[in-house]
Amino acid sequence: MLDLTPDEWTAVALSLRIALVSTVVALPFGIAIAYVLARKKFWGKALLDAVVHLPLVLPPVVTGYLLLVTFGRKAPVGAFLADTFGIVLSFRWTGAALACGVMAFPLMVRAIRLSIEAIDRRLEDAASTLGAGPLWKFATVTLPLTLPGIIAGMMLAFARALGEFGATITFVSNIPGETQTISAAIYTLTQVPGGDAAALDLVIVSIAISLGALMASEWFARRAAKRLHGE
């Protein structure tokens, strides 16, 4: 049976919270960027596309470093956020959520963008002739038809956030109860002689969460497809 210490349960809860918050907060930005990349033509689009995909190809430690020098307590953006809004990211779980969100962002944008590109735009034209202005057209036609991509994107982002290690540990370190996720806790345990047995329990929990997320997203995706294709 699972025999987790309170610290390890905290790591599990923290992992779930970080993954959930990073996915939900990233979603509106993900939809907006995916829409712009799928539909708009503008100068610098290739650059935006490259920047969005950068966390996918950069070593995670490099992304973590860049976050540190941007959002750290004394870094320009970090200091501004702390002084103006009282938002401190460095060495906090919120910073871990930011790191996970950034790392998962390219996967989320890709899934949503593919879904938007697959939409029959003539349906949007039909909505226009029925009196739907741009915002209503987006809300009542484009967004519902993007739903399968949104579900897939959220699932990928959630899974990526659960597994994030390099950028998180670089940016917010590995503080039990604040920034120590399942991955970081497993890593810590494996650094201690004989800790690999304790790590196994966390590994099992991690597999269970990932499987659960996968099955849940499959179920949602099937439901969405049914709704779209008329059952």
Partner: peptide, 19 residues
């Protein structure tokens, strides 16, 4: 813009909203 013209359209393929 199209949405302010109040001109209805029936297209060859119907274009009903599938959702």
């Amino acid at each position: 813009p199209a949405h302010k013209r109040r001109i209805g359209c029936v297209f060859q393929e119907g274009r009903l909203f599938p959702h």
